[in-house]
């Protein structure tokens, strides 16, 4: 069975210079799409990936990453909306490249779809009351 998942990888300093993602392709035949990357030498690296492939191979690949020392997080946990601060104005709606914000047509309440979020972070400074928060 084929799967497609969005995950956040945290690389400890010692792994930053190793070709981890290459192994995912070569050994587990996984297709990847980099949604966000910030890897700086001497520091921890962060990679947001969309991974596609066979479920079994995907699981093995994830297993490999964990054994290598990469910390894995589901993407949806990382960008959250502070409901107390959100005023449902809609300033985020057209800023989001994946359409994760949708207006409920009747009430015009802004709905946030975690599954569509790629954690690019564009909505964070675009939000006037600063209701969008990132937790990497």
């Amino acid at each position: 069975m084929a799967v497609s998942k969005r995950i956040v990888l945290h690389f400890p300093r010692r792994l930053v210079e190793r070709p981890i993602i290459y192994r995912l392709v070569k050994d587990y035949d996984l297709e990847f799409n980099i949604l966000k990357a910030s890897i700086t030498p001497e520091e921890e690296g962060l990679l947001v990936l969309e991974l596609k492939g066979d479920q079994k191979e995907y699981d093995k690949g994830i297993d490999f990453l964990i054994k290598a020392g990469v910390k894995i997080q589901a993407l949806s946990q990382d960008i959250t909306r502070n409901e107390e601060r959100c005023t449902n104005c809609g300033a985020c709606v057209t800023v989001c490249p994946t359409g994760a914000f949708k207006l409920e047509p009747k009430t015009r309440i802004v709905l946030f779809d975690n599954d569509k979020c790629i954690a690019c972070g564009l909505c964070i400074p675009a939000c006037p009351p600063r209701a969008m928060e990132v937790h990497f």
Partner: peptide, 12 residues
Amino acid sequence: PTASLSSYPRAV
């Protein structure tokens, strides 16, 4: 595509 900067739900 359009977006609003004022909040209609809060106006309601």
